[in-house]
Amino acid sequence: MNPVLTEPTGTTRRRRPRQKASTLSRPAAIGLGVGVTWFSILVLIPLALISFQAAGGGWGVFLETLGNAQTASAIGLTVRQALLVTLVNVVMGTLIAWVLVRDRFWGKRALEIIIDIPFALPTIVAGLVLLSLYGPESPLGVNVANTSHSVFLALLFVTLPFVVRAVEPVLMELEPEVEEAAASLGASTFTTWRRIILPSLAPSIASGATLSFARGISEYGSLVLLSGNLPFESEVASVRIFSYIENDNPAAASAVAVILLTVALAAIVTLNLISQRVTRHG
């Protein structure tokens, strides 16, 4: 395999300007019509209705919803725990990815499956299994059920794969020569990490962290059994949404949903900025 090495100076991979003209044949156009209609019925219109619902009440609904101490506390708890979990994932996820890529030992393949279990396991089952180890009948004698720690634990479980899976392929692509070059230029292991490896991983860590945070603030299934949903203690935002729905208050439910969405967007923007900064100051 010969890598292309003779590209002229200054050419970065530039995408061909996409032609605006449609290349759809008649059957393809019909297919597209059917597909988009289904997608709109299933996803787009219902989601749009949430913003209409929330916006329909005007700012009043938002203020009222946020003014509700129980809801505000639930949102606060959710964001705090999701942030904390994301922080742990940034460190542990990167470390796990490192071990998966760089270390060799018997049974490593099994580890790949274990990492993905939180993705595949139904969330209610996730809550249940965590409850069996860290609940009232814990064989370890650790009981976090019905506390804010249970939220942390459940989120830690369901968000485990995000950073690992984001960092792993980038780490695999990283040439060992680059680290050797840094070493031969006198950089210590720590300096190589901070100035060479970390900047290369930063974008993928950030994208994994974003996904982990977004998943964290929207988590529901794994918490219902584990956290006990105690107001002001262990009740999270999606449980509040659920209660609002049950109490026939879709406007408030939509308001919380929109607030969560805004927080998630803010997180995406912030993490992008952080990752750019880390990359630039390598």
Binding site: E175, V178, A181, S184, P199, S200, R280, G282
Partner: peptide, 15 residues
């Protein structure tokens, strides 16, 4: 060791 080393595939610090 204060050795200069040049690699076949450049080992450029891409960022």
């Amino acid at each position: 060791r204060n050795v200069g080393f040049v690699f076949q595939h450049y080992a450029a610090f891409k960022h």
